[in-house]
């Protein structure tokens, strides 16, 4: 079941991103900045004139993304390919990466949380979207911010579900529930992170 849901979600996200990029390119909405304006590490969120703290924030983001990629591959590769759970060294790598990831997330939410607040315009846009009213999303960062918050919210059950299973609180059934919580919230976390990073890069490139 989880394997099928995962496949379906990743295919939808991949196709969605592909279609979105194609529409952007065909519609001419993406125009690369002039040569020299882009830092050669623009895809890491780097740009010229960053303060020391800003650099540190970006390093934290890069580490978090690397950790997420590592955890994604260790957890999902076997599951997507053969519906196999992690065991052995793969599991050790996954578990070893997790604390680094959560610490990076902590740093990111503290350092970027303020920037990711919704502005008045974004609140209105959000409300309009909820009411299915047309909006003018030009230059809007609403989705980027929402995926940021969603990822942050999901990181708590993702972490706590596995942490709770390490204590003698839950029996076999509880452990299975915790594991299910972990895998489904992880799936949602990965999905929101992928969308967030895609939109972030798109915004960075424009």
């Amino acid at each position: 079941m989880f394997q099928a849901i995962s496949w379906a979600l990743f295919v939808i996200i991949f196709l969605g991103v592909l279609i979105h990029m194609t529409v952007d390119l065909v519609g001419g909405k993406i125009r690369s900045k002039k040569s020299g304006e882009l830092h050669r590490f623009w895809w890491c969120g780097w740009r010229k004139g960053l303060t020391c703290f800003s650099k540190f924030k970006r390093v934290a983001l890069i580490v978090a993304v690397i950790c997420l990629i590592v955890m994604f591959f260790t957890a999902f590769s076997g599951r997507l390919a053969a519906d196999q759970l992690m065991t052995g060294y793969v599991l050790m790598i996954h578990v070893g990466t997790a604390p680094v990831f959560i610490l990076c997330l902590l740093f990111l939410i503290v350092s970027w949380g303020y920037q990711c607040r919704l502005t008045d315009a974004e609140w209105k846009e959000l409300l309009n979207r909820l009411k299915f009213k047309s909006t003018n999303p030009k230059g809007s960062l609403l989705v980027i911010k929402l995926t940021f918050w969603l990822a942050m919210i999901l990181s708590v059950p993702v972490s706590m579900s596995m942490l709770a299973s390490m204590f003698t609180i839950f029996g076999t059934h509880g452990q299975e529930v915790l594991f299910n919580i972990h895998q489904y919230t992880s799936l949602a976390l990965v999905a929101s992170a992928v969308i967030h990073i895609y939109l972030l890069l798109r915004n960075q490139y424009k």
Binding site: A98, P99, V110, G113, M152, I153, S155, V156, S159
Partner: peptide
Amino acid sequence: VIFACVLIGLVL
């Protein structure tokens, strides 16, 4: 993890 989750929770 507990420390991080508690702080993230508080910020949220």
